[in-house]
Every structure is written in C-alpha cells, then in structure tokens.
Design a protein around this nucleic acid. Structure first.
Lengths: 213, 213, 213, 213
DNA sequence: GATGAATGAGATTTCATTCAT
DNA sequence: AATGAATGAAATCTCATTCAT
C-alpha cells in the first residue's frame, strides 16, 4: 500500500502526511484533490509523495484504508462496550458516540461520504462494500439479539428494520457533518446541547415502532 | 442565468444542450466535468457555450436550477394528487413515486447527490438550502395534517419526526440510485418487484411508531 | 491522424510544425523527443500541439507517416523513371538517387533508422513492416525482370539475392547518413565526388556475381 | 571508468550489476534506461550505483566497454581459428559464428545497434569508431590475404570490397537480431535451420563476384 | 562503504477561457 | 451569432543526483 520508503519515516512525519492528505481528499474529493497543494502545505518535495505511494491512487488508498480502519475500531469498541445494555440504549449510544467520533474525526466521515458519492473509483468499491457489509451485519445482529431478549417485536423483517436503522443512523451523522463543514445548508439547527435530546427522541420513536406491544 | 443568445435558440437545441451538460455534471461532478467533452458530444463550438452561459459556473447553474425545478414539480404534483389520502398512504406514494421519478430522471437525482456531497460550490448552497427547506416544510405539513386528522400521534415532536421521515425517504431513494448506477456497492438487493413490498413494510414500521395507540 | 484543428491551419504553419517535429524526433528518437522543445522552437503554446494531435503518439504518427510517404514517392518515381534501363543501371540509379534524396531529406532517413532500432513502438511496426515489404517486393521484381531480360543469372535464389541487394543499398545510405550527421564515426570517407565512383564499383562487383557468364 | 569501490566488489556481484545494466540499456537505449529500474531489479541501493560509477554516463560506459570487448574477443578468436581456411570458408564461418554469438549474447548486439543509431552520445563515438575501424581492418586484411593466395580477384578495389562484405555481414546479423527481439517486422523468415543454408548461398554469390575467373 | 530519503527539473496532458474571423 | 485556434496554468508522474546517517 505504502512503500517502505514511507513506512521507514518517523511516526510524526507519517502522521503529518496522513493528516494533510486526508484534509485535501476530504475537502476536494479524489479527482479534485491536488498533490501540489498537499506538498505545498507539508513543505516537502513533490517527488517524495510519489516515492512514498507510487501515485495519487496509492496515496489515496493509504488515506482511505487508514480512515476506514479508524471507523471500524470505533464501531467495534461501541459494540463491545455496550454488550450488556438493552437494544434501545445501544442505539442511543451509537447515535451520540457517533457524533462524538465525528467531532473528533470530522474529516474521516467527510471523506467517506465524498467518496461514496463521487463514484468512479473502482479501487474503493470493494472497501466501501466491506464497510457497509460490516455495518449491516452489526445492526442486524443487534436487532436479532434485541428480539431474542424480548426487547424488539419478533414479527419484524430483519433486513427491512436494518435498512431503517441504518438510514437513520447514517443520516443523523450526515446532518451534523454537513453542518460542521458548512457545505450543506443545515436546516436542522442541532447544536451540541441538543444532540442527546434528539438522540433520545429518535430512540423513542423507534421504540414505538419496534418494541413488542 | 443564461444569456439571451441561449434563450433565443430553438427549444430542441436548448434541450439537447441541457441533457448533454446534465449527463456530464451528474457523472463527473462539478470539478470533474469537462466542457471539452460536452461540446464534443454536442458537436457545437466550444465558444458557443461561453457565449450562452459566460463560464462553466453559468452552465452548471443553468443545469442545476432546471433540475431542481423538475424535482419541485414532481413533489408538488405528489402533494396535490394525494391530498385526500391518509398520512401513511401518502408516505407510501412518496416512496414509490420517488422511485419512478428516479427511474425516469436518473441523472437528476445523481446530480443532486453528487453536488450535495461535493461541496465547494458556494453558488449552489442557497439553492440546496431552499430545496431542503421546501422538502422539510412539505413533510412537516404532512405530519401536522396527519395529527389534525388523528392519523398520527399528537405527542410527536414534529421537527424530530420530520427528520425521521426525511432520512428514511432520502435514503430509500439513494439505495436505489446507487444500485442503479452501480457506483455504490449495493447490499440491499432490492429489484423492481420488491420496491413496493419494501415501501409497504417501511410504512408499516412507521405506522407502529407514529400512529396513536 | 491529425485533428481538423491542424488540418485547417494554413500550409506554411503546418509545414513549419512538421519540420520542427521531424527534427526533434529524428535527432532524439521517440522517447527522447520533447514536446517542450518543439513548441519552444516553434514559439507556440504547448496546448496547441495537443489540440492538433491529441498526444505525443499522434504527433509522431503524423510525422512518421508523412515521412514514409515521401520515401515511397521517391521509390516509385525511381522505379517508373528507370523502367527501360538495364538491371545494373537501375541499381546504380537507386544508389545515387538514394544519396541525393538523403541529401535533400536528411532527417527523414535519420528518423527511419532511429525508429527502426529504437523498438518499443508498437504503433510503428505495422508501418515499418509495410515499408520493408514494399521495398522487398520492389527489389524482387527488379531481379525477376532482370532474369527475364537475360541480364541476371537464371539460377539465382531470388529471396537470397534480394536480401543481398537490400543489405547493400540500405548500408550504402546508412554510411552516408551517419557521416552526414556525424553521429556515427564514419570510416568510409566518401565525399560528394566519390559517390558515383563508389556506386559504379559496387555495381561492377554485383554484376560479376549476378550476371550470366 | 568504474571507481575502486566497484572494483573491490566480489566478481559475482560485479557480474550481476553488469547484466542488469546491459539488459536495461539494450532494451531501452541510453536515454530511456532508468537507474531506478536497474537498482530495483538488483535489490541494491540507488546510491551505490552513483558511488560505483559516478553517474549514469559512467555506468553506461562500463557496460558499453565491457560489451565491446566481448565482441572483439569473439572476432579475434574467429580470425585466429580460421587462419588456414580459404577466404570463402572464412566468410561463411564469420556469418554462422556471428549468429551463434548473437544467440549467446543477444543483448550485446542489441546494445550495439541501439547505441549506434541513438546518436547523441559523444562519449561513445570514439569507441564505436574504434570498433568499426577494427572490423574494417579485419575484413581488409582477409581480402588482402585472399588475393595473395589467389582466392580473390586481384583487380578488386579493396576498400570497396570491404564495404561490400561489411554490409552483408552486418545486415545478416541485424536481420536475425531484429527477428529475435521481435522489434523489427521480419520479412526474412530465416529460422534456425535456414541460417547455414543462407550463409552458404550468400557466400556462393560473393564467390561469383569476387573469385578470379 | 552502503543506504535510501529528499529533491526539483522536466515530461506529458487537460482544461477553462479568450478573441479574431 | 457562431466558430474554433490559441493559450498557459496546473495536474500527475519520472528520474538522475545528492547527502546525512
């Protein structure tokens, strides 16, 4: 993925490069990103990037994989840390912790959506598919467990419900991200203090639709 | 928006130019679109585009506004034609008619999402904001009416419920579009025959969450 | 081969571009040629070349095909103008007129050899093959006719004799070209006045080998 | 030519470097050769090459001189081993042993022609000139000896005959090499079994032209 | 002596934009 | 009004060469 030339660099420099590239790609997308700008910001020679990553695609891949891995780690930790909570509480945690992840790593989520909608990037689709698959399975499993524990109605179509949950969660994050970057004209004026109230309300709605009566 | 030189063209030519530009922008995004390719496909002189629209931004604006208008017309017609149906039936119609709009105008929806996530386009954000505002008000009004008619629980937070609906509707379309274009690795295998079943199931879920008990 | 943008230029400009490109390619070969240098010499914008020919390969193709055509025309005129001479006289004419062609078009022959030995140019090999085929057939036919007229021994292996002739003719030109360009350390000190003497002597040698006794 | 750092390496490593560089230069020519690729193939540090040879030119020089020496040794051994054969038999041996040398050292002959026609290499021309001088003297001497022994006509212009022989020999090798490498579109379909037949036929032709009658 | 990270000049190519005809 | 030739900035990428370790 990255050549040994890059791996041999010291950690601070590697990180600096990752951050600069992430910033560029997340702001401009793949096609719009300029290696010229990246190296100018970093203050290194243009050739170095190509020595590290071979080409633009290589640089992007490095950034994208590292970003995806960060997301996966986040999801895994949420799953593991909420194992004993009930279904609706887990959803609420997913929502609020998602926002706090997004606050800490705003560019990662921005990169993800930019790439998702940019299309044209054959070398990403396998990764994107894997991520979505994982998230899909994660939610399905949560629902299945919720049914088992009697927290969720047993007559639900699981894939339909997963879609339903996934939409909601993803959109919840998108709404905040687009506001955070000012790119999308936010109409949901949710500021920091309102996030948890919103999360609670959404979970309330979900509960009405999904809990056994 | 477009100069008089353009407005004076005959309708067929204007339409041809719109379609070619829409195709390019929806496939490549704003930055990735190439006026070279557009004029090559059209077989007209490059200078003409600049005479008609001033610059790339002008051309894009023309395409974007016209696309947005088409969407607005669609929404308005759905609203007007379903005025007498009950709340849940209206939602179901929104879902299925949304899909059929998307099938007829795949590039318009593609353009909308591409631009939404591409960002960087100051001159779009007002338009995007207006569209979202409109759609938001459309849904809010539907909910309010639903409550009035006793079809929806009266204790709902309307903006929260609007968000909830909006997420679901938008994501429903996105799922189909991304599959239609093959850009996003679909994991929801919804083919033609399944659309209405899915719509019905989602509405069922919504009903459980939103209907008075 | 060349886009209409180029074909529409006035003849003087087209010729100027041809000459500048021929010079660069014949001096540096395909890989070594620099479009930067060509446009600098011409005093035109870099982009123009790409508008005319699409890419470096396109420019080269144009130059190469035009050069080859010039050679073919030369060969054809020699063949037609010497139809009534005897075999050995035709060979002598080939040698001396070859030299005079080379004096008038030194870069064309230089281009031909450069490319022949540079290899790696898939898009040339068909052309090169065609040229060699043509020259091969031209010589074979001359020998066949020589035999028919009783000027050449009838027991000759024609393809062997063609190889033999071809070697001599080609090498004769090469020797002069390499001296002309100073690229190859000439050891054959043939100056202008000696060319025809050499041609006569070589033909004398050939005659001893090929004429019936 | 090569710095002591190189000369102090063990023989196997020196040979490995020679082979890798010969391969690159013979395939791509001087300008097209890439030190990057050479060191990548060798698995040594790029800096080492510059420590051994100073610069690209130095590396090339080393490769070229060593290659030329191999050719000279070959020629010398043919000359010495055929001293007692008659003139025409020596020529035949030159042709066939030339082919067998080329089969054993295809890259050396390829390098020689690539460079000969690439030009632009001031530091080669002295070497090339020396080689051609040597080969020229070798052939002249053979002819002189042939005349002395009564095998060759005594009225021959020796330098003309040398040119004649040289053309044939060189072209004979070229034809095979270009076919061997597939670079030049072969029209002489000579495969392995035909080489000696061709050599015999060419010698027959020569004999007719050169032997006293 | 060997290493390989850093460099920057220079290559090909694309593209929006201008402007004379 | 329409044309399309001309432009040059900026993009990606390659490569010989240097030099600190």
């Amino acid at each position: 993925m990255a050549y040994s030339t890059f791996n041999n660099l010291d950690k601070r420099k590697k990180n600096k490069i990752f951050r600069a590239a992430l910033r560029e790609f997340s702001e401009k997308g793949y096609a719009g990103a300029s290696i010229n700008r990246i190296v100018a910001e970093l203050g290194i020679a243009k050739g170095s990037i190509f020595q590290y990553f071979g080409d633009k695609e290589g640089l992007f891949n490095f950034v994208f994989v590292k970003s995806i891995d960060t997301v996966k780690d986040h999801l895994k930790s949420v799953r593991d840390n909420t194992r004993d909570e009930d279904f609706y509480s887990r959803i609420e945690t997913l929502l609020t912790s998602g926002i706090s992840f997004l606050r800490k790593n705003p560019r990662i989520y921005a990169l993800y959506t930019k790439i998702l909608y940019e299309g044209n990037l054959k070398f990403c689709s396998a990764l994107l598919k894997a991520v979505r698959q994982e998230s899909f399975e994660f939610l399905s499993e949560m629902i299945r467990l919720g049914i088992e524990r009697g927290e969720v109605r047993s007559d639900m179509d699981i894939s339909c419900a997963t879609f339903y949950l996934d939409s909601l969660l993803d959109r919840f994050l998108q709404a905040f991200m687009l506001e955070h970057f000012g790119a999308r004209p936010g109409i949901y004026k949710a500021n920091d203090s309102q996030v948890s109230r919103w999360a609670r309300e959404l979970v309330g709605l979900l509960k009405k639709g999904m809990a056994p009566q």
